[in-house]
Write a protein that binds this DNA or RNA. Structure first.
Lengths: 240, 240
DNA sequence: TAGTGGTCTAGACCACTTT
DNA sequence: AAGTGGTCTAGACCACTAT
């Protein structure tokens, strides 16, 4: 795939910081010549980078590396450890539970397992600079992820592991504000109950549902942020 | 734009339900002939519909209307009134405040107004089947939206009005769990304090920041949900 | 085997921005 | 005036799916 080769080449320039924000990107004609392809092929590479928000194109002016703020979408699947490291803070995890349990009827149905089947269950507290910011209570499909219990989740998070072994194709989220249960309060090392942001996340692969996680964050220590830009496509899209 | 004409034609078939899920869509060659365009142009229409998640394409097999579940993205800008109506519930709004106030220093800076400038301020409670589910506390840029105070926000929400008069290009969100202030508690008709999901949303147009809204929802009456699918592009995208 | 989508070419005309 | 991106054409070859 020639257009992908061009894309990868441009990715590297942008990702490495060699081309900072607003740096001009070679024009369609230049790229076509450099890579010995037709202009339509070079154009496709630039167009896809534009769709992904990495570059901004202006008719008559040229193509430029996009300002960072327009790059990220809201609530892409997040990994708490990455986020903490991104803030240059220390992350560590404590595994509270790692076991197999009988699945509740609703969960068994979701995972397409027979009633009474056993599923993997983990509870992990995540710390940012020594302070508990999330307790992750997760159930995992043993058919799709047989080796889940053998992992060392102080070294890498369940999310990282699941992304490696299964290509996620879908996810759903539910966010609500709750008071923590007594058990959650202990896991979060909260002296007093306080409002918590609770995210339930389910992920799917092509073969079925992989995992359900309930992530509980103390309201005083955690905030979920996001930024989005609207591109032409989203604007034309009917609401349905 | 010929490709857009084809897209609009296909939108109508899908949106109206004339073509249900999995219904076959005309092939590139058929569309090219029907609309008297080259295959590349017909292809572009189908490709964009595919990028938007409205159709699914399989090499060798054809193009088909996508199953509904793969259509919606997470946390697109939401309108509380639409959501309530979508659930077939009754919505009504009570305007608690509609005034101009001196902007706080931070807000004035964000809106690129001089310190001490006045901004529009509205507080509106939204009800679902007679129960308060959101209090919307909003500040609006008077330069970009001069007629804000003249609107009747029991008839249409500020969000609807702002979308009409300004083409939004960007938005940021912050979500947290909090206890409501006494004033919020009154506006939400809460007998007792309870955890609330609070969303701060800022929106921009090309000329600058339009509005800041703080949306507070009682945890017991509101849950934020979302669904997302991962397409090829997102998977190839480097994390940055 | 016929039809489909995926990729690619080598041109073309246009509207727009920059110089 | 020169260069840019936006659109479009009329071909082509390939890998894949359905029959």
């Amino acid at each position: 795939m020639k257009y992908d080769h061009i894309k990868q080449s441009l990715y590297r320039k942008i990702e490495s910081g060699e081309w900072p924000e607003h740096h001009p990107v070679s024009s369609e004609n230049k790229l076509a010549e450099e890579f010995s392809v037709s202009r339509m092929t070079a154009r496709r590479a630039l167009q896809e980078l534009s769709d992904e928000g990495l570059v901004v194109r202006t008719r008559g002016a040229g193509t430029f590396v996009a300002p960072l703020k327009s790059q990220s979408a809201l609530l892409t699947i997040r990994n708490i450890a990455d986020e903490i490291r991104l803030r240059k803070h220390r992350h560590h995890a404590v595994v509270q539970l790692l076991e197999d349990v009988v699945a509740e009827p609703g969960l068994a149905t979701l995972l397409q397992l027979p009633q009474g089947a056993r599923v993997w269950h983990s509870v992990i507290t995540h710390f940012e600079n020594g302070q508990a910011v999330q307790v992750e209570d997760r159930y995992v499909n043993p058919v799709l992820v047989p080796d889940y219990l053998k992992q060392d989740f102080t070294a890498h998070t369940p999310h990282e592991y699941l992304c490696e072994v299964t290509p996620l194709t879908e996810a759903s989220h539910q966010i609500e504000a709750v008071l923590p249960s007594k058990q959650q309060q202990i896991w979060l090392e909260l002296a007093m109950p306080e409002p918590c942001l609770q995210i339930q996340r389910r992920t799917w692969t092509r073969e079925g549902m992989v995992s359900q996680a309930v992530l509980t964050h103390p309201g005083s220590r955690f905030r979920l942020g996001g930024h989005m830009t609207f591109n032409k496509k989203q604007q034309n899209k009917p609401s349905l």
